[in-house]
């Protein structure tokens, strides 16, 4: 079993380790857009068409998904949710699973620019859709204004609900909501944050709304 040796070697930094381990898992082709090191800006935003994990597994079917502006030909279990396909087949693990039942919002992605719970969508039914995940919004080196606002306002603690919060927030800003904090609280209530970073989430979203 070829495990990248770096996985066992705690010698690198927070950022570098993350990148190296990611590279070792999925191959350099798909990694560049997803994760850049904390301390380096060299990662290219260009990603080649991918066949990530398209190895034939018994019981899977071929489909093509468009994710973050790129087509991916993959083999998936016909029962696979969009969430599991993003995470387990495309290795876009920024999208998180918190409940698998449409109850927490951790898996929020955009499908044709609208926010959805990807755990409630079957991958095979999303073949003609434009899917955007947190990786498509911005990387650590080129944060989207909403991502930057979440860091600036400390809109998270553990960070696990955060991808979903940000995907929800980016979509919410374009939806017809009122101006008040209470509107944001209402609009963001499909995304549970067990750490309870709600006041800071509202502050981050409002900061971005004021900017635009």
């Amino acid at each position: 079993m070829a495990i990248d040796e770096h996985e066992n070697e705690p010698k690198t930094s927070l950022g570098r380790l993350t990148r190296r381990s990611f590279l070792s898992h999925v191959g350099a082709a798909t990694a560049a857009t997803a994760i850049a090191p904390l301390a380096s800006s060299s990662a290219s935003a260009e990603a080649a068409p991918t066949e990530a994990a398209s190895t034939k597994i018994p019981g899977t079917v071929p489909i093509t998904l468009r994710v973050n502006g790129q087509s991916h030909a993959v083999q998936v279990d016909p029962r696979a949710t969009l969430l599991d396909t993003l995470r387990e087949t495309l290795h876009l693990t920024g999208t998180k699973k918190g409940c698998d039942h449409g109850q927490c919002g951790a898996c929020t992605v955009h499908v044709n620019e609208r926010r959805i719970n990807s755990c409630l969508a079957l991958a095979v039914m999303q073949q003609n859709a434009e899917i955007t995940t947190i990786e498509g919004i911005g990387g650590p080196e080129n944060l989207h204004p909403m991502q930057d606002a979440f860091v600036e306002h400390d809109g998270f603690q553990c960070g696990y609900c955060t991808s979903g919060q940000i995907m929800s927030a980016v979509a919410m800003v374009k939806e017809p909501w009122g101006k008040t904090d209470a509107d944001v609280r209402e609009a963001m209530s499909g995304n549970i944050c067990r750490c309870g970073a709600y006041p800071n989430i509202v502050a981050a979203v409002q900061a971005v709304r004021r900017m635009s």
Binding site: A36, T93, I137, F150, T162, S163
Partner: peptide
Amino acid sequence: RRVDGPLKVSGAAMYASDHHFP
């Protein structure tokens, strides 16, 4: 500002179930 903030807000922070191996 949290030093790990940019990784968390971009989905790049690796949690246990994010790890994948051949």
